[in-house]
Design a protein around this nucleic acid. Structure first.
Lengths: 165, 165
DNA sequence: GAAAAGTACCTCACCGCTAAGAGATTGGCT
DNA sequence: AGCCAATCTCTTAGCGGTGAGGTACTTTTC
């Protein structure tokens, strides 16, 4: 019944009993868990010649309503990265022929990003493996616990302004 | 009652109704939440001239039992980064006079990392602000919900082999 | 006590992100 | 119409990470 974060909390209790370090019980575990998850997902992506950033862009385009066109600004909000990061992601994907960029007909500032047939095929190949990996990472939790966890995380997200609207 | 992940799930349901994307309800939210949290924490660190990596090393040393000596290997396991990353973190901190490296007297392969008085003072200055930020990020959740959340996250961590021992 | 296996730390090339800011375009305001 | 703030995309410098591999030391094995 002990993990790294329990040890961390006990150590702080010894060294700085004057401080309330209880938030670390949640935030420390979130950090370790997402690090662990990202490492695992990265392995699956690599089997398809992808990295997390590329997969994210391709999947975001794939799930968007037909004709699967998104702007860099939309990709930026979806991925929670800076505009510079999106530009570079698109450079790499365009270089590999997985997406295309074309100017918007209605707004001169805007670029429209589209999946190429190769990009579409690649993400459809990678997606089932990715989902299998995600499922494996959650096997310890039954459906009820997953729903409860998802609900709590959503509350936190919304409280931090990450809601839609 | 809707967040970005709810939209994501709905979109996949439209585009690929043949796939079970339910694991994304948990894993997608974990990803967004830890990204949001890291961005917020980074701001607090920057107020003290630190970044997440440097804070992590200083805090790990600070909470370790007196005389606050750790090896790069221990820091590596604690931070879940590669040995190369630890070497570079220590280079930067040593350069700034916040930690020292000295050879272990008992094992010629090992290096002992220690906080300098400056490093000790800096982490003790930054820590209360850091905890205040963490507390603020969790205000939406009462004590019971936090404990329940921490417990679920710990179960997941242990199921993935991140337990102690 | 020599060879082999294991462990610890570091180096280097490369990758992806941030932060800051530039350049272009749009839309609201007067 | 003209101005100005806002928006969109891209560029670049610098940071911090990985992954592969090297060197040095220790422990195991025979």
């Amino acid at each position: 019944m002990t993990d790294h974060v329990d040890l961390l909390l006990a150590q702080w209790g010894e060294r700085r009993p004057d401080l309330d370090v209880s938030p670390m019980a949640v935030i420390g575990r979130l950090k370790r868990l997402s690090r662990l998850i990202e490492t695992e997902l990265r392995r699956t992506f690599a089997e398809h010649g992808l990295d997390p950033a590329s997969f994210d862009v391709l999947a975001t385009l794939r799930r968007s309503p037909p004709p699967h066109l998104l702007t860099p600004a939309e990709l930026m909000r979806s991925a929670m990265v800076t505009s510079g990061a999106v530009s570079q992601r698109l450079d790499r994907l365009e270089e590999r022929g997985l997406v295309t960029r074309s100017p918007s007909p209605t707004d001169g500032r805007v670029v429209q990003v589209a999946l190429t047939p190769e990009g579409h095929a690649l993400i459809d190949r990678a997606l089932p493996d990715h989902l299998a990996t995600e499922e494996r990472l959650l096997t310890a939790l039954g459906a009820d616990r997953r729903e409860e966890l998802a609900g709590t995380l959503r509350e936190l997200l919304e409280s931090l302004g990450d809601g839609v609207g």
